[in-house]
Nucleic acid binder design. Structure first.
Lengths: 216, 216
DNA sequence: CTCGTTTTCCAACACTGTTCGAAAACTGTG
DNA sequence: CACAGTTTTCGAACAGTGTTGGAAAACGAG
């Protein structure tokens, strides 16, 4: 079948879902299409452009997933509920592909229309929530980079933590008592994500109640 | 001179500062040491371990820079000042190397002692600021990932934005009025960073005043 | 010196992204 | 259909990557 930019991105997404970000190669994408690697370069300027297109598609998926989640919300939902719906939709969309956070991290974020759509809806939600207009941009930016940052460290966490001897462990506890102590709660990533979001809500709420707070 | 793990990391850091994260190769690091690439593998398990060691060193530099900045603070400094000092020190340390944020992003963060030291001091500052203990872990985690996320998008921003036709620009303005409008303030990255930090402060303050806020 | 260990070299291997000229496929025209 | 022109694909090549393993050198102790 004929080769197209769209079909190349499609194949790129499936290969991406299978082998992850680190092992994605042009040759594998070409193989999936029954073509040779060099042929891709007639439709795509290079791997960078392909990655950028794929990042945009992830954003689109996150946007669509967000509209579904928002639609399922009861009419009594508050604005933190609506923000959380969008944030978790974005997080789940990124987590669908191994290394998905790195894909979003390394592509220049604000250019793709998918990212713009995510941003636009978030800004609207914040405005409706009562956040002053002059702080909405910062707030939405912070929230988006927070989600990608969270998934980044979530996906990079080693599945099996390296074994430490009792001696090393004791030294760590002495040097870093707070970190090794009970300040770091042993909760699931989902709950951790939800609580970090509520932390941001608190900031948004403080901004909407007394806008002067963020101006120093 | 003899080859050592420390010397390899040293060479890696200088090459890293010159060519950036994307173009860092084992052969360049070996060349800088007057050695051959294969020799590195006697001291280092692979490129991954070298990158992890380098990430740890960046964290150490950020920690040391933070102690200096904190020491230069007047005694009248408030806790937001002390947090901002640590956050900006971390940001500047990451920005010193091109692609430094990606280095931190791709290395499993919580394992290195440098990252632990950063975390420990941040936790202490938050505790002193009055943030309830059960929220300190989340808060510190959110702040660290916020800084790396911010520098990530800061370093990936294209220096010269691609030219858009007036027609495309008009369509963008119609589809994304909030994003293209004046909600996104045209301020420097420094000021943007400072304001996003104040947004997090507001969240911390809300937590320390009424801890129930973040529990729903 | 000599043995044994630690360290370095060097040539390979299997990959990667990318380029380029030639071959093929397709399109519209006489 | 045949021909010319364009669009698309191929296939081989290039320079570079991380990594490995056996040979060679350097080193320290007896």
């Amino acid at each position: 079948m004929k080769l197209t930019k769209e079909r190349i991105v499609d194949a790129g997404m499936t290969v991406f879902a299978e082998v992850g970000y680190q092992n994605l190669s042009m040759r594998q994408v070409a193989d999936r299409l029954g073509a040779h690697a060099g042929s891709l370069y007639y439709h795509v300027r290079g791997k960078d452009e392909l990655l950028a297109l794929m990042a945009d598609r992830v954003c689109r998926q996150a946007y669509d997933a967000g509209t579904e989640t928002l639609a399922a919300l009861p009419p009594t939902a508050t604005w933190p509920d609506r923000i959380e719906a969008q944030a978790t939709a974005l997080r789940l969309s990124i987590k669908q592909h191994p290394g998905g956070a790195q894909l979003l991290a390394e592509s220049p974020g604000r250019l793709s229309t998918g990212a713009l759509a995510l941003m636009e809806r978030l800004l609207r939600t914040l405005l409706d929530a009562g956040v002053p207009a002059e702080h909405c941009g910062i707030a939405a930016d912070a929230l988006l980079s927070h989600v990608t940052g969270f998934v980044l460290q979530e996906q990079n966490q080693p599945s099996s933590p390296p074994p430490v001897t009792a001696e090393q462990y004791a030294e760590l506890c002495e040097r870093f008592p707070l970190v090794m102590g009970d300040l770091i709660p042993r909760i699931s990533q989902d709950e951790k994500f939800a609580r970090s979001l509520r932390l941001l809500y608190a900031g948004f709420a403080a901004l909407s109640w007394s806008p002067r707070l963020a101006d120093r």
